[in-house]
Design a binder for these strands. Structure first.
Length: 286
DNA sequence: TTGCAGAACTGCATACCGGG
DNA sequence: CCCGGTATGCAGTTCTGCAA
């Protein structure tokens, strides 16, 4: 619905945009053709130049332009136009504090390929890989994942960022990623009940006890998060179309599930869940 | 020209909430 | 637990269209 958006023009808010839609001016081309007589001149020149520019920026595949002009709560509108350049991103760490904690794994998904990074193996490849994308989608990544990555790798993540926490909150879905998934009927299969804190224990089991199955379970969890981010993005996009003139026209199809390279190991999950073992040196930091 | 209403925008303070 | 991004609410300002 980006090409039906007028809110990124200075002086046009959601109300004016709605009146434009009501007049049958549904897209940028409509405005450039039809609004010429009705729109007042001084602001019309600015609007026209921004809309012409907008068309060029979409064709050139540059989401940054809209990132700067759109109000942040409407950034979800860019998704279909820039989906091919979008990466879904999630990190796992040994805790919440950037100063004292380290990144254990990173999962990156572009809608087709899944990439994973492991501390001590290939974590250093991440900063270069993320440069291939122009848009990132996360859950609460604006306050956690991105600052953590920037600090950890001493890099700046410039990508246009759709943080689903705020998109879903605005739609009434709150209580964290897992709760949003539950409310929207997304099933986690064998990873039910595994959360971020649990992932800290999986990493500890891998490091301290050499349990390779714990790392596989952690990666399965990390990857499930990013794969589900795409599902949530599409669901949120479709829900946001409700109440607009474009309801029933622009809905996106649900993505198909990719091949998942790791499976959760139930005996490991059970062992940790029932408290039989807690990593001693990790427990103080959590 | 003047006054009014509506819309957008800015600048505050406050509150909430989510990550591992 | 902590911290930062965002939402909300409110007041004040600016801009524009419209009508008197």
């Amino acid at each position: 619905m980006l090409k039906k958006t007028f809110c990124h023009v200075p002086g046009i808010g959601i109300r004016t945009e709605a009146t434009l839609w009501g007049k049958g001016i549904h897209g940028w081309e409509d405005f450039l053709e039809l609004a010429q007589k009705t729109w007042p001149l001084p602001s019309r020149k600015l609007a026209e130049s921004i809309l012409v520019q907008s068309l060029e920026q979409v064709n050139q595949g540059n989401p940054d332009y809209f990132n700067h002009l759109l109000p942040s709560h409407l950034i979800w509108r860019i998704f279909p136009e820039f989906r091919a350049q979008t990466a879904y991103l999630d990190i796992e760490t040994t805790g919440l504090d950037v100063e004292s904690c380290q990144i254990t794994t990173i999962a990156l998904y572009d809608g087709t390929h899944i990439f994973h990074y492991v501390q001590g193996e290939n974590l250093e490849a991440f900063p270069e890989d993320i440069l291939k994308y122009r848009v990132i989608v996360t859950y609460n990544g604006k306050t956690f994942d991105v600052p953590f990555l920037e600090r950890y790798f001493r890099i700046k993540i410039y990508q246009t960022h759709i943080d689903l926490r705020y998109v879903l909150n605005a739609l009434g879905y709150k209580g964290g990623l897992k709760n949003c998934e539950t409310l929207l009927g997304i099933d986690r299969g064998g990873l039910k009940g595994v959360d971020g804190l649990f992932s800290v224990l999986l990493w500890a089991d891998y490091i301290q006890n050499g349990n390779a199955k714990a790392l596989e379970t952690l990666l399965a969890y990390n990857i499930m998060d990013v794969v589900n981010l795409e599902v949530l993005m599409v669901l949120a996009y479709n829900m946001n179309l409700r109440g607009t003139p474009f309801e029933g026209q622009l809905e996106m199809a649900m993505p198909s599930e990719p091949f998942l390279p790791f499976y959760p190991h139930q005996p490991t999950i059970e062992k940790i869940r029932h408290g039989g073992w807690v990593g001693a040196s990790f427990s103080g930091k959590i």
